[in-house]
Design a protein around this nucleic acid. Structure first.
Lengths: 185, 185
DNA sequence: GACATGTATATGTGCCGTCATATATAGTCG
DNA sequence: CGACTATATATGACGGCACATATACATGTC
């Protein structure tokens, strides 16, 4: 569902080919959304069928021709409807919490290992995200940041906050199940 | 993928029918995992094929017969492998962040409305979760809580923390884009 | 008496996503 | 020279998941 709307979102910024879109997804929303290449092309075909997008072939020399997709008026209306509309109820699925829910049968050391590995993964993710944020921060330093840019930064901030929360939670849980031994009073 | 493992998790606690499993999903992990009824039956069939689960029909009078599923030794090994194994790289997909990413084209009031509605939704979710936690807290008050129970509470705590984080983030963003007017000095 | 709800299992259909693969050319690296 | 990467689009196969629907009986409600 959302994939088509995401594509409309990108096409509202500028006309793009499927190839462009794949790069745009990976480079700009990659930290919270992944899109499969094959699926992008199929979604584009569907958007054209629905009249939300128009295509024209741009011939190129030395490289394959591009199929440039441009959003239509109907497509813009559809996009705005999605943007302002209610959130489609997304099915929550947290595989890691599922593991924790059933991890009572594990040996304590195995459980600790699972949690420690999780913290490591999340720490690495946090570094990636703060790295991205720092990079953008330096790039934009001084200038006044407009609303669209501010919103893009906000999506990054969201990831950073949730990653920090996840690390804090896992650390707290680790301490709970494996209290650091204390000298008796 | 995870659905079969989640089912193995439940069956490691006690033998269950598909109907039991559906209720177990909705009642105990419903706040972070949803499972479709049809999919549960298909997953069970597959688990039986793979030798991870055994079935026997329990005849009942006055109500339909139950097909009781019991985890096998191979199933337990599979479960433990999943529990201790590396997290399968789950594709991140945050539809709301996608909206925010493209929401720069909205009129400021529409954007504020989207964010405000989101905060409301998350606040309601927070109330649900804290309600659940309080209920469990009262139920377990005084007794000593064993590890499996502690882990189940931890999954709830995870949801509460992330929901709080989401609310804080959205509130901060709202203030950023709509600074409360201040009297001039 | 009709209708809804609970118990219980199962199939059909269609969408979406992932992975593999095909095709064609230009440039780069060892 | 051969292998790999980048540019660019497209299809086939397969699996998971959601939603609708079917069946059957008991009990509770208006």
């Amino acid at each position: 569902m959302s994939l088509r709307h995401a594509i409309l979102g990108f096409l509202s910024l500028r006309p793009m080919s499927g190839y462009d879109l794949k790069k745009a997804f990976d480079e700009s929303v990659g930290h919270f959304w992944t899109a499969d290449q094959a699926q992008i092309y199929r979604a584009l075909a569907r958007l054209v069928d629905d009249g939300h997008v128009e295509v024209r072939t741009v011939e190129q020399t030395g490289r394959p021709d591009r199929r440039e997709h441009r959003i239509t008026e109907a497509g813009l209306r559809e996009l705005d409807g999605w943007l302002t509309g209610a959130a489609e109820p997304r099915p929550m699925r947290e595989p890691f919490l599922l593991k924790i829910f059933f991890a009572g049968r594990l040996a304590p050391d195995d459980l600790k290992a699972v949690l420690t590995r999780h913290v490591d993964t999340e720490r690495r993710r946090l570094e990636t995200l703060t790295g991205l944020a720092d990079g953008l921060g330096r790039l934009l330093a001084g200038r006044d940041i407009d609303l669209p840019q501010r919103l893009r930064l906000a999506t990054l901030d969201n990831g950073i906050r949730h990653t920090r929360t996840e690390i804090e939670w896992a650390d707290a849980l680790l301490e709970q199940i494996d209290p650091p031994s204390r000298p008796d009073r």
